[in-house]
């Protein structure tokens, strides 16, 4: 009895701790600074999107939004494509070479991005990949290949070996087997990995911070970060930036929730 009351109490308090700040942010994004400070919890007096307009056109966040869309739309499918090719080969080949290739590709999970940022910056500089979206895409793909190979390769290894053998007896080439058998069967793990990559690439801050110099090449997280110095306590403006930057991921979360939990957990399980 007492146990169940305290259980409810704990859950209720934590729900408030999660939801109240989020509500304050949503309400606050429609307020002026004095209005926010006077009553952070109150419903906004006007729903005119003044702050959003200021952030999008005045602060050029519309451009950053487009950059984030481009970078994410290219990085995620490209990573999935390269990782699924590798994962399929690893699942089919078996034996020493399979283990060697898988081990080599997955090894990168142990290397934190901050560890090789200096040489990577130098290399990207030589290749003309600093301060453009191509460089950001390449950095995203390379840094998440290990985890994508881990998730996809791990899943494809659980597909029955007979499946692969049957198609090679039929004389079906590896490309055909990959595109018409393995990929359709791997949809659940592709969805999970895709969501995981979407969240990581959309929110990526280190590489833009490292590589991008020109404001017109900023992605959303970097644009947001640059607000922090400019608008110290103009929270309504910061909040509308936060909402804009989070909107696509939040919408996806609402509609694809189970893939999120599966994807982000499978991402976590490899650490």
């Amino acid at each position: 009895m007492i146990g169940s009351i305290s259980r409810r109490g704990i859950l209720a308090i934590y729900t408030v701790i999660i939801l109240v700040p989020l509500t304050v942010v949503i309400f606050g994004s429609f307020k002026s600074t004095p209005e926010l400070f006077e009553g952070p919890f109150s419903f906004p007096q006007s729903l005119a999107p003044t702050n959003f307009a200021e952030v999008i056109s005045g602060q050029n966040m519309g451009k950053s939004f487009m950059n984030s869309v481009i970078v994410t739309l290219v990085s995620v499918p490209l990573t999935l494509f390269l990782a699924s090719l590798a994962g399929y080969a690893v699942a089919r080949i078996r034996g020493f070479w399979s283990a060697a290739i898988f081990g080599f590709l997955v090894l990168g999970m142990a290397i934190p991005a901050q560890a090789n940022m200096v040489p990577l910056y130098v290399l990207f500089g030589r290749l003309g990949l600093l301060d453009n979206l191509t460089g950001l895409i390449l950095a995203n793909v390379v840094s998440t290949l290990p985890i994508a190979v881990f998730i996809l390769g791990g899943f494809m290894r659980t597909l029955p070996q007979e499946l692969y053998e049957a198609s090679s007896i039929d004389g079906t080439g590896p490309w055909k087997t990959y595109s018409s058998i393995v990929m359709p069967l791997s949809t659940p793990s592709l969805a999970a990995a895709g969501i995981f990559l979407f969240v990581i690439h959309w929110n990526e801050l280190l590489y833009p911070l490292l590589f991008v110099r020109s404001p017109e090449n900023r992605t959303l997280p970097l644009a947001l970060l640059s607000f922090q110095g400019e608008f110290q306590t103009n929270y309504p403006l910061l909040f509308s930036g936060v909402i804009l930057a989070s909107l696509p991921v939040v919408l996806a979360y609402i509609f694809l929730q189970r893939y999120f939990v599966a994807g982000i957990t499978s991402g976590a399980t490899k650490g």
């Binding site: 090719l85 290739i101 080599f104 990168g108 290949l145």
Partner: peptide
């Protein structure tokens, strides 16, 4: 098949 991933990595 794994070549592009291996080369990039």
């Amino acid at each position: 098949f794994p070549l592009p991933a291996v080369v990039l990595t």
